[in-house]
Amino acid sequence: MSIDHNTVKKIATLAKIRLTPEEVQSYGQELQQILKWIEQLQEAKIPNGVLPDPSMKTELQRRSDQVTDGGNTDKVLLNAPEKAYDFFCVPKVVE
């Protein structure tokens, strides 16, 4: 499995992490090395009918669909990097 610089850039875009050209280079090498190591899984024989992780089959418990709290605007906004009135602020999205 080879991982070229375009692939690294594409993954970084998907992961929303900006990389410098030097980082594209160095992460490229490290990812290549890790993926090569992970590649040993391809030799593992998996019998027919094995389902992915059985623990995922058990149904998760659900709480009843009820409002249990609210009116915590101040708490919700306490750690906001930027806020105005009762809202989080972000850079303009729509022109």
Binding site: K16, F88, P91
Partner: peptide, 19 residues
């Protein structure tokens, strides 16, 4: 992602801010 809590590096666009 810098929106609701934690570090934010200000930027012109939302994608730039995230990245």
């Amino acid at each position: 992602d810098g929106v609701r809590y934690g570090l934010r590096i200000p930027a012109q666009t939302l994608d730039d801010m995230y990245e």
